[in-house]
């Protein structure tokens, strides 16, 4: 994959670059602030060579607040298909919801805590999932964001198992991985997923039901 990295801490940027090249990816660009990120992406867009993925820190200059997030939101408005993975130093706040809120129905979003990067195999898998249009949300961020009554839908409450299934789905796990985690059979997982879709009112003929289900769950 061709990847653009945006990270202001030099050590971390170098580490990220090394990890990505070790896995055989090409680091198309390395920037250290949000403005430069948008500039680089604009240039690449003009030459029709948008990267396959953007990995960006949330907190970056110029404001050192949530510049990375804002840039990501703007980039997604211009290029709705551009997969972006955000790395955050801390859990809380309205970050995740903002990112998800501004979406229509697209996937290709990742939100990870920075320390996850050192779990290289999982990190690389997450990149693959996001690049192919899926979701990867860090479990700690998920737990923090999901507190009260998130399971109520037009079709009724999600059961405990269904809640766990959709949580794993948001973390970017495949059905096989979900079955392993919950120690249930593949059919069991499929049944739960079908039930989730039904309760959320997602019909069989809709595209990207998985992505929509996750979005719907994250947005409540």
């Amino acid at each position: 994959m061709r990847i653009v990295i945006a990270e202001d801490a030099a050590l971390i940027r170098a580490g990220l670059s090394e990890i990505l090249t070790s896995a055989g990816h090409e680091v198309t660009g390395e920037v250290c602030d949000a403005t430069e990120l948008e500039n680089v992406l604009r240039e690449l867009a003009e030459t029709s060579s948008l990267p396959d993925l953007v990995v960006s820190d949330v907190r970056m200059p110029p404001r050192n607040a949530d510049d990375g997030l804002e840039a990501a939101v703007r980039l997604r408005e211009k290029h709705p298909d551009l997969p972006i993975v955000l790395l955050s130093a801390y859990i809380g706040g309205p970050y995740l919801r903002r990112l998800v809120q501004n979406e229509a129905s697209q996937g290709g979003i990742g939100y990870l805590l920075k320390e996850r990067v050192s779990h290289v195999r999982e990190f690389l898998q997450s990149l693959d999932v996001v690049a192919s249009g899926g979701f990867v949300i860090d479990p700690e961020v998920l737990h923090a964001a999901m507190h009260n009554e998130r399971d109520e839908y037009p079709g009724g409450h999600l059961t405990e198992k269904e809640r766990q299934v959709i949580e794993f789905m948001s973390r970017g796990l495949s059905n096989t991985q979900i079955s392993d985690q919950l120690s249930i059979s593949a059919q069991g997982t499929s049944k739960h997923i079908a039930s989730i879709f039904q309760k959320m009112g997602l019909h069989a003929d809709e595209d990207n039901r998985r992505v929509r289900a996750i979005l719907r769950w994250l947005r409540t």
Binding site: A9, I12, A14, E18, S22, S118, F123
Partner: peptide
């Protein structure tokens, strides 16, 4: 602390992770 020590520790953690990746499971 954030700009100095935490940065260093994170980079160290990433190096170890990369080492593990290269060594293989």
């Amino acid at each position: 602390l954030h700009d100095g020590v935490q940065q260093d520790l994170l980079a160290l953690s990433m190096s170890l992770g990369l080492l593990d990746y290269r060594l293989g499971p």
